[in-house]
């Protein structure tokens, strides 16, 4: 089983931090316009949010695994709901590599595997080095072509 690149934790922590900042701003705004919220409470709430975000990111990284098996791409992920997904190669419609702005700064990229299933069931593997992402995309494409039997849809 392959794990993600450790640096993905930074992205997830950064995202959590942004959410914490948004929460802080919302609380301060609430304090300003509506009811008085003690500064200590705001600080505590933001601190708790930050700790949760860091814990979540770390745990998420620990749990994330994927593997190319004989017939399918197999993934394990999820902190609150743990999900094991198998995407048979025959069902792969196309494969994208994506580089977001923050990901690019950290030298990471994602592979997105599309199927003909429900739209949000498309699988995204984040936290790959660009080389690994490209090779994975290549491998998946070959496997998808190789196993192409008949028309699914």
């Amino acid at each position: 089983m392959e794990t993600l690149h450790p640096r993905i934790r930074l992205i997830w922590i950064a995202r959590g931090a942004i959410a914490a900042v948004v929460l802080a701003v919302a609380l301060v705004a609430l304090d300003q316009w509506r009811v008085t919220v003690p500064a200590l409470a705001i600080a505590a709430a933001v601190a708790v949010a930050l700790v949760l975000a860091v814990g979540y990111a770390v745990r998420r990284y620990q749990v994330w695994r994927f593997e190319l098996q004989d017939d399918a791409l197999y993934l394990e992920r999820g902190v609150v709901t743990f999900v094991e997904t198998a995407v048979p190669f025959v069902r792969v419609q196309h494969v994208d590599t994506q580089f977001g702005p923050i990901e690019r700064v950290l030298g990471l990229s994602s592979v997105v595997v599309y199927t003909a299933g429900s739209r949000n069931a498309d699988v995204r593997i984040p936290g790959l080095t660009p080389d690994r992402a490209r090779s994975l995309q290549e491998t998946l494409r070959e496997l998808a072509v190789e196993s192409e039997g008949e028309d699914a849809v």
């Binding site: 709901t81 743990f82 999900v83 198998a86 048979p88 299933g117 069931a121």
Partner: peptide, 15 residues
């Protein structure tokens, strides 16, 4: 033969 993906899902409570 119509399966696209299969997922086993477990929430904290289910685990």
């Amino acid at each position: 033969y119509r399966i696209q993906t299969v997922s086993t899902r477990r929430s904290v409570f289910q685990r």
